[in-house]
């Protein structure tokens, strides 16, 4: 089954599409450009699309897999813990023959990337965590994304709500609703009981040894920027960039963000 995608926004023209079977689950992977590989791991909703990765494809091969349960990948109800994604991506990258990669990851994807990088440190060159979830930070709790009312979602996603509104359909759109329900269901399998993150990640995250960029919107209402300092302390080889007038969808809202990532990757 091909899951629904947000046809209003998602434009994969120019990308190559492949499918892999990972532990029995059909996984869709898009790629664009050539050069050293960069993986982009998307967050808990794929409706904003991936246009911003085109900037990195100027001199890199950018690989965008859909997580199981999201977009064009099949469901895998066996994935009920975020650590299951570690093994999913070990398997997928093995199949793709990817040894060392750079990873850029957003939100839930950044949580997955941090878990993966803790386990597979030698296979990562550079890591960019954009508005990450994953580390429990009691001083700066997040509002629990499952509790955010649908009608207010756009106000949470971007500092300027009109930016996020572009992603949404104008009226009742059952494809869009089904996309949201399906992806929220997949997210809920790992996140419903751990909305603040994985309590064990803090004791493992020091295993990440690669240079890491933490990129955050000053006005992120999903994962408050106050928590950024904790991430920075836990990752000694990290640098933190906080972008003003930017919300949670950093790469989509702030036109400078994709370039900042590119600059970090090419250093």
């Amino acid at each position: 089954m091909d899951g629904p995608v947000n046809k209003k926004i998602v434009d994969m023209s120019g990308f190559d599409r492949s499918e892999y079977v990972v532990s029995g689950v059909r996984t869709a992977v898009y790629s664009i450009g050539s050069g050293r590989p960069v993986i982009y791991l998307h967050g808990g909703g794929t409706f904003p699309g991936f246009d911003f990765v085109r900037e990195w494809a100027r001199d890199r091969r950018v690989i965008v897999p859909y997580h199981p349960g999201f977009g064009e990948s099949d469901d895998d109800p066996r994935i009920d813990d975020v650590s299951d994604y570690i093994f999913h991506y070990i398997d997928l990258f093995n199949q793709m023959g990817l040894d060392e990669v750079d990873i850029v990851a957003h939100s839930l994807g950044a949580w997955i990337a941090a878990e993966y990088a803790s386990v597979q440190a030698p296979r990562i060159g550079r890591l960019v965590l954009v508005a990450p979830n994953g580390v429990v930070i009691p001083e700066f709790p997040n509002p629990d994304s499952f509790k955010i009312p649908k009608e207010q979602l756009h106000e949470y996603l971007t500092a300027d709500p009109s930016v996020a509104l572009r992603y949404f359909p104008d009226g009742h759109d059952i494809d869009f609703l089904t996309l949201g329900f399906r992806e929220l269901t997949a997210f809920s399998r790992v996140g419903w009981e751990y909305p603040q993150g994985n309590p064990k990640l803090r004791q493992r995250i020091h295993l990440i040894t690669c240079p890491t960029l933490l990129l955050w919107g000053q006005e992120d209402r999903f994962f408050p920027v106050g928590g950024a300092k904790t991430w920075q302390e836990l990752l000694p080889k990290s640098e933190l960039r906080i972008l003003p007038k930017t919300g949670h969808l950093v790469l989509g809202e702030n036109p400078d963000a994709p370039g900042i990532v590119h600059e970090f990757l090419t250093r």
Binding site: K150, I174, L177, T178, F181, R182, L184, S188, R189
Partner: peptide, 20 residues
């Protein structure tokens, strides 16, 4: 209100059948 909606409560194809 909004609490009638719950991720994972019904299968995805059932959600579509019920028009959301």
């Amino acid at each position: 209100g909004r609490f009638i909606e719950l991720p994972g409560y019904i299968p995805v194809d059932e959600f579509r059948r019920r028009d959301g």
